[in-house]
Amino acid sequence: MEDTVTQNKIEKWLSENTYHHSEFWDLKKMVERKEEQNLTISLCLPTLNEENTIGKEVVLFKSELMSRYPLLDEIAVVDSGSDDRTREVAASFGADVYLANEILPELETKKGKGENLWKAIYQLKGDIIVYVDADIKNIHPRFAYGLIAPLIYRPEVQYVKAFYDRPLAVSNEVRPSGGGRVTEILIRPLFSLFFPELTAIIQPLSGEYAVRRNVLEEIPFPIGYGVETSHLIDVYSKYGLDAFAQTDLDQRVHRNQTTRALGRMAFGLLQTFINRAKSLGIVKEMAEYNTILRQFQVQKEDYQQVEYEIEEHERPPMIEIEEYRKKFQVET
């Protein structure tokens, strides 16, 4: 019975809340609707050593979505401390560039993509923040407007997630659709076990999403691998599946990660998941877990351990930070 309810719920959500970016080609109309609602929108590009791709992202978004169609009110690069020329390149093409460590400097220093995303909530001014990874080779304005559009057209939508599903040839045959290796091997099975409705999100780990500030400021941020997973669980727990939408942005060309790197990612994600499962009371009385991941390498006949200390630190909801409440005049 419950299965049918979930199935129907997912089916309804897929038909009503899943978009293709081409539905939002009319940028002029989108800008008009944005202005009617008096919304401000910020684009955040979190970076760590992305000098090869950041310039292209900045120049394209700036030209198309600020100058030609004023959809974005600011484009900000929040950098983890790149030792290449990421910040210089981004600034030369006209982005506002921030070092994550210099935002809210009185807080303890932490380093990770989630940290950059979290600090962007304080630093940027938008009512909507759209996050786009900085390593996308085939960047296009759709990576931002495809995610912003459902928030502009549907006030009840709070969080829009990207997915990428461009088949090389379309026929009437059924074809599989889904995420990458970590999604299909780890996240979707976990969601199926504990949050079956969230399986409707085709690529839960995609790094591109647009979110309303009032939602962002109320959720905690793991600073490492787990930020996307925790967002989904937290927003779902608070607002339900209908707060989400997802947009197909066609193909995304980016660096491929090795299986070992994905192993480390999965390790971090599992920690986040267990933490959420514990706090929501889904899993009870679980022993403390280890934070060292062991992978192995061999030299001649000597098998060697390679240890990675991976601990998913978490930032509290931004609304709990006093400086934030002052800056945005949030009443306590």
Binding site: K56, V59, L60, K62, S63, E64, S67, R68, I139
Partner: peptide, 15 residues
Amino acid sequence: EVGEIIIANLIMLGE
């Protein structure tokens, strides 16, 4: 000042 216009067009056309 408007260099981004031509660079953006170059990227989108050229790809």
